[in-house]
């Protein structure tokens, strides 16, 4: 069972490299923002798999913190795109 979860972990890390490919290759600015947003959601899955593998509950705390801060970061980038100052 541990080896099976290891394989899933490697697959998830490989998927996050696809997001890096889109960040480097993407022709416009919004493509890169899509890449960093998807990367933030994928790592929550990595946290969940590690918490199953080690049977500890505190890894899920990091996952919840990651969700909240990724939301704040994406809102900042989206507000940049729509052409406003950050305080309007």
């Amino acid at each position: 069972m541990t080896e099976y979860l290891d394989i899933l972990l490697y697959i998830q890390i490989g998927l996050s490299s696809i997001c890096l490919f889109r960040i480097i290759r993407g022709p416009t600015i919004p493509d890169r923002m899509v890449g960093i947003d998807i990367f933030g959601i994928l790592v929550v899955g990595i946290c969940a798999i590690i918490s199953v593998q080690t049977e500890k509950s505190f890894i899920l705390d990091i996952g919840i913190a990651w969700i909240i801060l990724s939301f704040i970061g994406t809102l900042t980038l989206a507000k940049y795109l729509s052409g406003k100052k950050l305080n309007e």
């Binding site: 909240i68 801060l69 950050l86 305080n87």
Partner: peptide, 16 residues
């Protein structure tokens, strides 16, 4: 920093 993040979220959504 997470507590400060809640206020940053409100400022981003509603304006200052």
């Amino acid at each position: 920093v997470i507590m400060a993040g809640s206020f940053i979220l409100l400022i981003l959504a509603f304006g200052s």
